[in-house]
Simulated scan of single mutants.
Amino acid sequence: MKTIDGRQWATREDLIERSGYGGTTLKSLWRDRRANGHPEAREIDGVMHWDVELWDAWFAEQRKRPRDLSGVDRSGDPDEELPPAGQARVLGVDPARITQYAKNPPPEWPDPVRVEKLKTRDREYRTRAQLWAWVDDPMSGFGTKGGRPSGPDVKARARAVKVLDARVRLAAEALATMPDMEAGKVAALLAERHGQSVSTWKQIVTQARKQARQ
């Protein structure tokens, strides 16, 4: 964890410890950032870091996303080992979804309890208990549109607005401490401190100035 200009910046390892989620989950969330509104990173000493305040706010909202789990089958032996078709029935999805998960696993997708070696592929078995625990984990993303957010829904837009508001506040603070500095230079300084492009920060600085006049 690093502190720069009074703000804390965390590496992915710091976020793993902070959130309690594994590296695979956090990498998946970062990979899907265009859909889920994940905050941008800043490179510090050659390592990606995230603004802790922005990331915590985003993460809290991510865990509160509304989900529909009504299609999940909660019956049967929790310890029964199921092949992909059986896993699909428990989750109430097309078997192709399980095949997709094998190639591109969603956050927290459980490891198989055993793997059957076939001539052309491996068949992975998971228990009902594993699948139930997975769908009940809000970070799995299961139960949202498409099983994983595929585009900016209302919640995603709300998260994006919240992150933008935080950045406008950062710009307002910078303008207050450097009132004589040109907007372009303020934007360049903010881009250096917090990541994203100078042009993006110019827009945010302009918005902060508008709000200050109101």
Score class of each variant (00 low, 15 high):
residue 2 K to Y: 10
residue 2 K to R: 15
residue 5 D to N: 14
residue 7 R to C: 09
residue 8 Q to G: 09
residue 8 Q to D: 12
residue 11 T to D: 07
residue 22 G to I: 00
residue 24 T to Y: 06
residue 24 T to G: 10
residue 24 T to A: 15
residue 25 T to N: 05
residue 25 T to E: 07
residue 25 T to Y: 02
residue 27 K to T: 11
residue 33 R to C: 09
residue 39 P to E: 03
residue 40 E to W: 06
residue 43 E to I: 14
residue 44 I to Q: 12
residue 44 I to N: 08
residue 45 D to N: 13
residue 45 D to Q: 13
residue 54 L to W: 01
residue 54 L to P: 00
residue 55 W to E: 00
residue 61 E to K: 14
residue 61 E to V: 09
residue 61 E to R: 15
residue 65 R to P: 02
residue 69 L to G: 04
residue 72 V to T: 03
residue 75 S to N: 10
residue 81 E to N: 09
residue 84 P to R: 06
residue 85 A to R: 12
residue 89 R to S: 13
residue 91 L to N: 02
residue 92 G to C: 07
residue 92 G to Y: 02
residue 92 G to H: 04
residue 95 P to C: 11
residue 96 A to S: 14
residue 97 R to N: 10
residue 100 Q to Y: 09
residue 101 Y to R: 13
residue 103 K to M: 11
residue 105 P to C: 08
residue 111 D to R: 13
residue 118 L to F: 08
residue 123 R to D: 01
residue 124 E to W: 06
residue 124 E to T: 05
residue 126 R to E: 01
residue 128 R to T: 01
residue 129 A to Y: 01
residue 129 A to I: 00
residue 129 A to T: 01
residue 130 Q to V: 03
residue 130 Q to G: 06
residue 136 D to W: 02
residue 137 D to N: 14
residue 139 M to D: 03
residue 141 G to P: 04
residue 145 K to V: 09
residue 149 P to A: 13
residue 152 P to Y: 08
residue 158 A to P: 01
residue 162 K to S: 14
residue 163 V to L: 14
residue 165 D to K: 12
residue 167 R to C: 01
residue 170 L to N: 01
residue 173 E to R: 12
residue 178 M to H: 15
residue 180 D to T: 11
residue 182 E to A: 15
residue 186 V to L: 06
residue 190 L to M: 05
residue 199 S to C: 08
residue 200 T to Y: 10
residue 202 K to A: 08
residue 203 Q to V: 06
residue 204 I to P: 00
residue 204 I to L: 07
residue 207 Q to M: 14
residue 207 Q to A: 15
residue 214 Q to V: 12
